[in-house]
Lab assay of single mutants.
Amino acid sequence: TTYKLILNGKTLKGETTTEAVDAETAERVFKEYAKKNGVDGEWTYDDATKTFTVTE
């Protein structure tokens, strides 16, 4: 399944996708990605669109 991440950081904005077996796995991948890019904020997930959003 393809999951999407929307980054709404103070200095970094953008989108990325990952293939994962479930939302929990995708969330771990995306949180590591955000951490590596210095983005830390509020996380939300929309199951209907398989989209995570992190907003600083």
Rank of each mutant, 00 (worst) to 15 (best):
T25E: 15
T55L: 06
T11S: 13
G9D: 03
W43L: 03
I6M: 06
E32N: 09
E56Y: 10
A23D: 06
A20Q: 08
K31G: 04
A34V: 09
V21Q: 12
T55Y: 09
K35T: 14
E19C: 09
K36G: 07
K4G: 04
T16Y: 15
T44H: 12
N37Q: 14
F52S: 01
K36R: 14
W43P: 01
N37F: 15
K31L: 08
E42S: 13
K10Q: 14
T11Q: 10
A23M: 11
D46Y: 05
V54A: 03
E32A: 13
V21G: 12
G9Y: 06
A23R: 15
T51K: 03
A20F: 04
A20S: 07
E42D: 08
T49D: 04
E24T: 11
T51N: 02
D47L: 08
T49W: 04
N8W: 13
T16L: 15
T2A: 06
K50G: 04
T18M: 14
T16H: 15
A23Y: 15
W43A: 01
D46C: 07
N8H: 11
K10N: 08
T17Q: 10
R28S: 11
D22R: 04
K35Q: 11
T55F: 08
T16C: 08
V39R: 03
V39Y: 06
V54K: 01
G41D: 02
E15K: 08
W43K: 00
K31H: 09
T11W: 13
V39P: 02
T18G: 03
T53F: 08
N8Y: 14
V29Y: 15
T51R: 03
E56A: 08
F52Q: 00
F30Y: 02
G14M: 14
E42V: 15
K13N: 09
L7M: 14
A20N: 03
T17N: 07
F30E: 00
T16Q: 10
A48M: 12
E32P: 02
E19V: 13
T18N: 04
T18S: 05
V29H: 14
R28Q: 09
E32I: 09
D46A: 04
T25D: 09
A48L: 13
F52E: 00
N8P: 03
L12N: 07
D40W: 15
T25A: 15
T11R: 11
E19N: 14
N8T: 10
K35D: 07
D46F: 05
E27N: 06
K31S: 05
E56Q: 14
E15C: 07
V39T: 04
G38A: 07
Y33N: 02
G9S: 09
G14V: 15
R28F: 11
G38K: 07
T51Q: 04
V29F: 15
E56N: 05
D40A: 12
Y33I: 05
E42K: 11
G9P: 03
E42N: 10
K36M: 14
T51L: 04
T1A: 14
A48D: 13
V21K: 15
T17S: 09
E27Y: 14
E32M: 09
I6W: 04
T49K: 07
N8A: 08
T18V: 13
L5W: 03
E15T: 11
T49H: 07
K4E: 02
A23I: 10
V21P: 15
E27A: 14
K50M: 09
A23T: 12
R28V: 10
T51W: 02
F52N: 00
A23G: 05
K4Y: 14
A48N: 12
V54H: 01
V21W: 13
T44M: 10
Y3I: 01
L12P: 04
V21I: 12
D47F: 11
E15V: 12
E27C: 09
T51E: 04
T16R: 12
F52T: 01
E15N: 07
K4S: 07
Y33E: 03
D40F: 13
A26P: 01
E56W: 12
K31D: 02
L12Q: 11
D40H: 14
G9M: 11
G41Y: 02
T18P: 01
G38Y: 05
L7R: 02
W43R: 00
T11I: 10
G38S: 06
T51F: 03
G41M: 02
E32Y: 07
K13Q: 11
E27K: 10
D46Q: 05
A48G: 08
V54D: 01
E56F: 10
E19L: 10
L7W: 13
K4M: 07
K31T: 05
E24C: 09
Y45V: 02
A26K: 00
K31Y: 07
K31W: 08
K36S: 12
T17L: 10
G9V: 10
N37G: 05
T51I: 06
K10H: 15
E42A: 12
D47P: 13
G14C: 08
D22K: 04
Y33M: 04
E19H: 10
K35S: 11
A34C: 07
D47K: 09
A20Y: 03
T25K: 07
D22V: 03
L12W: 14
Y33C: 04
G38H: 10
T53W: 09
T18D: 03
T53H: 07
A26D: 00
Y3F: 11
V54M: 06
T1S: 10
E19T: 14
T16A: 15
T44R: 09
T44E: 15
E42M: 13
N37V: 15
D22Q: 04
A23K: 09
K35H: 12
T55N: 09
V29I: 11
D47R: 05
T49R: 07
L12F: 15
T11D: 12
Y3H: 03
V21H: 12
T51H: 02
T49P: 02
T55S: 10
L5A: 03
T49E: 06
L7V: 10
T55I: 08
R28E: 08
K36F: 11
L12C: 09
L5C: 06
T55V: 09
N8I: 12
T49V: 06
T11N: 15
F30T: 00
L7A: 03
Y45E: 00
L7C: 05
